[in-house]
Design a protein around this nucleic acid. Structure first.
Length: 171
DNA sequence: GCCAGAACTCTGG
DNA sequence: CCAGAGTTCTGGC
């Protein structure tokens, strides 16, 4: 498998976008380019990685527009491996409207599980490789807390604040 | 390989 | 407060 990736500046730090010929396979955020590349290499150790700052430009632009509130929809081709359970959870996440949030328990309920499956849902969110395309930051805890965030709670807070400032109906 | 425990949780006792 | 629920992953044996 051949993966091309690029790393650009974003309001939330350095943004890595990696894609196969079929679609995006990874999106992640970090302060350091080196860490981003190391994590990509670890997750796709069998793939042939090569940096290409032009080929994914269209998708990078879409993500940056999304981060700055220019667009609220991301409809990008994805090429990710996932179990049935993860796919179902991610579908639910993508169904959450921009600027809105769901609790982990609500997501479990929407999938036909009881709210006790909330923990499994949280874990499925945490293992999502395309953080912004699948908006796992819109999942929060039932007690109003943010829960955790794989790419840093600060980024989760920033994303939610950004979305709420664009969609002022949801406060 | 198998089992225990953890991971972005929540509810009921 | 503690345990258990539903799934996946990791680490110890």
């Amino acid at each position: 498998m051949r993966i091309s990736y690029t790393i650009v500046d974003s309001p939330l730090g350095r943004l890595l976008v990696a894609a196969t010929p079929r679609g995006i396979c990874a999106v992640s955020l970090h302060d350091s380019d080196a860490v981003l590349e190391a994590e990509l290499a670890k997750d796709y150790s069998k793939a042939e990685l090569h940096r290409d700052d032009t080929v994914n430009q269209e998708w990078v632009d879409a993500l940056l527009n999304y981060l700055s509130g220019v667009t609220s929809d991301l409809d990008l081709p994805l090429d990710v491996e996932a179990t049935d359970f993860q796919r179902k959870v991610w579908d639910q996440l993508r169904a959450i409207p921009y600027g809105s949030t769901r609790t982990y328990g609500e997501l479990a309920g929407a999938l036909g599980y009881s709210t006790t499956a909330a923990r499994a849902v949280g874990h499925a969110c945490a293992t999502n490789p395309v953080s912004l395309v699948i908006p796992c930051h819109r999942a929060i805890r039932n007690d109003g807390g943010l829960g955790g965030y794989r790419w840093g709670l600060d980024r989760k807070r920033a994303l939610l604040a950004q979305e709420r400032s664009v969609d002022l109906l949801f406060i």
